[in-house]
Amino acid sequence: MTDAPVIVDADDLYAGYLPGIDILNGCSMRVQEGELIGIIGPNGAGKSTFLKALFGLVPIRSGSVTLGDEDITNMRADELVKRGIGFVPQTNNVFPSLTVLENLEMGTYQRPKAFKAQWERIGELFPKLVDRRDQRAGSLSGGERQMVAMARALMMDPKVLLLDEPSAGLSPDRQDETFVRTREINRTGVTVIMVEQNARRCLQICDRGYVLDQGTTAYTASGQELLKDPKVIELYLGTLGA
């Protein structure tokens, strides 16, 4: 941990989709400004639920989330976007009937005047999207959709970007490209919290990693430390190429 201020503080979260059934059971996380955080863990550990709870898509029954000094627990997603949080879901992350350009326009829905400048900025980061601006997003490949989804989230110039398994379903090449892009985005000053199934690749690029198990935070350390942790290797990374 550095001495950068804490930007997201999730404290002892209990949350779930159905009444009385908690997926998160006391999950906590402190994220500093400019960090790239990777969240790994087995299936059903509550990784995606944690991200959705931060973004107000899953009701938090107990615990709190703060953004800077502001309590944002259970705040509506559109309010969170206004406060500088962007979210890229794992699936269904584009508007299929809208063109690429229209998808990105939705990213600046709250600040329409910023669209032109943001489009130029995003065009430099994702040049391929400029060529496909008039193509319907539903006709894009998985990798291209992921690009559109990330670009849409970046259109609002977020302080914090939440990525839910950005490499899921992509070819190895595309996965690499996605991780490189994620790091590039982080280097522009955006704090990134990323849930990933590809634990090894995730830990390689992240500043710190959190290991979730059964809805609670099992371990946290720097990405490099977790890569060398025997228990993490045994449970989540396997032994090859450790």
Partner: peptide, 14 residues
């Protein structure tokens, strides 16, 4: 149209 496509994503877009 965006809400029609995906209300959750529309909300996540602000």
């Amino acid at each position: 149209r965006a809400v029609s496509d995906n209300p959750a994503l529309a909300s996540a877009s602000g």
